[in-house]
């Protein structure tokens, strides 16, 4: 993966791997974790949990609606159920079940969507979850978490398991650059400032955090000081971090591997509008679906690059 290479970020594990390994570890600590699979455990990496805890793992076949209903019943009986499938399938196929069985009755089901974004590559748009964050945010009471890399995904998985309510955790397929160190601070709803700056703020999540760090480096070459904030939690959004960015830097660029409507950009813009209006720009997938290709080719072709963030920052600064 090209993102982050220019600033020397090394590639870590895919966030789906970090999730799967962390989940297996947490399984030892929390005997009430039960995992429901839609026959994709070797893709979502719940296979590690399945191997260690076969009695607490249920592969119910390619049936996302049923997965979520079962999880709802398990949660009502005091279990900590995790349902994991592709982001596109679990949210789009089982949205009504997430609404009726999880959000509305306020049950602490943990929903994990893998293969999010266009960086899955060659499998193409049918497999790419790029509207999942909007859908998850629409569910009342859900926390929505999009971690950036391997160490923060490990921490996010623990935070998800320990969160009292329902959570959507979004993870990706490819190996991604490491921006955190092991044992990093991670609190649902509390953004992490990764780099301070005074002229503009780059707010990103997921893979785009590394791209934003790269963009900040490029902007520095032009004597523009960019703050970089990892807004890993889209809901509940960190209002204080956004207000501070608006007031202290005067402009915000929001970067995400998601469609334009209903994602991180919308959440940040709502907060800015309510607290401290400032100039904003958005780097995302727009209002269209992608195609097959290598992850690097797709990120380039669909404008999810450090250069695109730099251009957006310049627009904000004009």
């Amino acid at each position: 993966m090209k993102i982050g290479a220019r600033i020397g970020l090394s590639l870590g594990k895919a966030t789906r791997d970090a999730f799967g390994l962390a989940l297996a570890e947490l399984g030892r600590e929390y005997p009430d974790i039960v995992v429901i699979d839609g026959d994709v455990h070797n893709s979502t990496r719940t296979e590690y949990f399945a191997r260690e805890f076969p009695d607490r793992f249920f592969n119910v076949g390619i049936a996302e609606s049923n997965m979520v209903g079962i999880a709802s019943g398990l949660a009502a009986c005091g279990k900590r159920p995790v349902v994991a499938s592709f982001a596109a399938f679990i949210l789009c196929n089982a949205f009504d079940q997430l609404r009726m069985g999880v959000a509305f009755p306020e049950l602490p089901v943990k929903v994990v969507g893998s293969h999010a974004g266009i960086s899955i590559g060659e499998d193409g748009p049918s497999q790419m979850g790029i509207e999942d964050v909007a859908l998850a945010c629409a569910l009342g009471g859900f926390a929505v978490v999009v971690p950036a890399d391997e160490p923060s995904t490990r921490a996010a998985t623990r935070a998800m398991i320990e969160h009292p309510g329902p959570v959507y955790l979004r993870v990706g397929r490819p190996k991604v650059p490491v921006v955190y160190t092991d044992g990093c601070e991670f609190q649902i709803g509390r953004a992490n400032e990764l780099r301070d700056g005074t002229d503009v703020t780059l707010i990103a999540n997921g893979l785009m955090v590394a791209a934003a760090l790269e963009a900040a480096y490029l902007l520095e070459q032009e004597d523009i000081s960019a703050r970089v904030v990892d807004m890993h939690t889209v809901k509940p959004i960190d209002v204080a971090a956004i207000q501070a960015a608006a007031e202290e830097t005067g402009g915000i660029v929001v970067c995400e591997e998601h469609l334009h409507y209903g994602g991180l950009g919308a959440a940040v813009a709502q907060t800015v509008a309510e607290t401290s209006p400032c100039r904003m720009a958005f780097v995302n997938l727009g209002d269209r679906y992608a195609e097959s290709g290598t992850p690097d080719e797709l990120l380039e072709a669909y404008g999810l690059t450090a250069e695109a963030i730099v251009a957006a920052a310049r627009r904000v600064l004009e």
Binding site: N66, G69, I70, G73, A76, G78, K79, D96, Q97, G101
Partner: peptide, 12 residues
């Protein structure tokens, strides 16, 4: 949706 939820209770 009720049968899936019931199955969750039954597995619990």
């Amino acid at each position: 949706q009720g049968l899936s939820i019931g199955l969750g209770h039954a597995l619990a």
